[in-house]
Design a protein around this nucleic acid. Structure first.
Lengths: 135, 135
DNA sequence: TAATTCAACGCAAGTAATTGCAATTAATTC
DNA sequence: GAATTAATTGCAATTACTTGCGTTGAATTA
């Protein structure tokens, strides 16, 4: 999604907003705090609240998506990079990715009979990865 | 799991701890704040930090389990009541439940080939329920 | 049942996340 | 390109959650 669509949606493209979007695209799976640190390398004074509000705005406008990979806060992706389901290992914390096609299949298999439309990008699937099982 | 097993595990069964456990069992899907409010009906002065620490202790001891049903904090269940996967509707917020047998089947179907052992009780499956789709 | 011990408590301080508001500034209009 | 307007910003305050510490009291032992 090109950046000039930001303006096309009635949003202003401020330096802060551009930097937040760049950071999300660059980092992937990034928390608001990590994004703020990255942004501050280019724009020292940016406030954390500005980062939070830009993340919210950019998500509402469809540029980015958040996912819960664990306990605390959300992590952010560029919207067009979400083509997978996240597999979080509760032991080592590694985040593996499963192709969306597969994920959709398995979720639909069980859930569609209830009419529940699953957003497979929103939550992680939690468990223990193969490596940690043999430890 | 009977309460006298608390003592059997080297933990003390304080009035606060008993009330926290009772509240989790009674409420289901309850946040720490909701649990604190319920406990305070019986024991007015209980501190929120006591509730948090008891939830952690009771979870470590295996009496309760936490699940992330959405953005903020965790919600707690009695451990022996977890026989389902949570289906959270992002629109109306309703939490539906899917039998664990079904859920295990569908997760294993796709994920076992990667050797990933899924804890289907830890995260919710997020999406839009049938009722909200027709709105 | 009195003494002992240390798990658990309440309080207060600390950290993390969010929100209200006045000042600023991007984009538009003249 | 100056004036206008309202979206956006930074700051400060608030809310949410967590942690450190001295005190209390549940369970054990004599």
């Amino acid at each position: 999604m090109p950046d000039d669509e930001i303006r096309a949606r009635g949003l202003r493209l401020t330096p802060q907003r551009q930097l937040v979007l760049d950071a999300v695209r660059e980092l992937g799976h990034a928390t608001p705090e990590e994004i703020a640190q990255t942004v501050r390398q280019m724009h020292a004074g940016i406030n954390l609240s500005t980062v939070y509000r830009n993340l919210e705005t950019l998500e509402t406008a469809g540029f980015i998506i958040h996912t819960h990979l664990g306990h605390g806060g959300a992590t952010y992706h560029a919207a067009d990079e979400i083509t997978h389901l996240h597999l979080v290992c509760g032991d080592c914390g590694k985040v593996d990715e499963s192709e969306l096609e597969d994920a959709k299949d398995f979720v639909d298999l069980i859930l569609k009979k209830r009419g529940f439309a699953t957003d497979v990008t929103h939550f992680a699937i939690y468990g223990t990865c193969a490596a940690c099982q043999v430890k």
